[in-house]
Amino acid sequence: MSDQTPILNAKDLSIFYGDNEAVKSISLPIFEKKITAIIGPSGCGKSTFLRSLNRMNDFIDGVSHHGEILYRDQDLYADSVDPVEARLRIGMVFQKANPFPKSIYRNIAWGPNINQLGGNLDLRVENALKQAALWDEVADRLDDSALNLSGGQQQRLCIARALAMEPEVILMDEPCSALDPISTLAIEDLIEELKAKYTIVIVTHNMQQAARVSDYTAFMENGVLVEFGETDQVFTRPKEKRTEEYVTGRFG
């Protein structure tokens, strides 16, 4: 396994919805500029875990945490940490594309604008759209409503929106689950390319997707981290029997 220090590091992390323990003492490192896939059956807590990495669980009533998540040695849940700033550095792409009901341009410019990131805004929008492989399709209609884009384009727009913030980490919560196979491939290609600049954590139902795009894979079941390792190893020589059964499609 890698000897580099992780950019995010969950240590003995448990997450509760009220009294219900959805994530059970998980310890999982997220390595810089790598793609980490989290797989597991529905309801295993993988999305809950992902949302805890940029404090999006703050918006869900009754969620509480035990243990810690270190972001470069700083506890994300420490009282002194500003969650708004944490989300600036750790961006997110959601399961269902959620473009704002605004123009394509204003969707991308929205984040940089409110956070006064400075620089040339037009250029920032263009770069983000190029990185998200959407520029060629929308360059001549930036003022059109983002809601007129197709589902796959909307999801790439949401990726571009996250990229425009130049975050260090991008969390992706089943970003392709609502997309057709062609859009899915486009986004997987995109994720590969983004690895050069960003750290990516992707939650997915699709095992082929995890195997195709990720460097590391974590397999979760019933809130427990069953196995974590390099993707090759997890898929070809899993240490745990449950992992083997899952990745070979014998259950789930």
Partner: peptide, 27 residues
């Protein structure tokens, strides 16, 4: 206004006030 739009705003480092005045109210 769908919660997903609010979450989109928060994930871009917005405060509650920014999400309210710049996403929820316009929408």
């Amino acid at each position: 206004v769908p919660a997903s739009l609010r979450h989109g705003g928060y994930s871009l480092g917005a405060t509650s006030f920014e999400v309210t005045t710049r996403i929820v109210v316009p929408a």
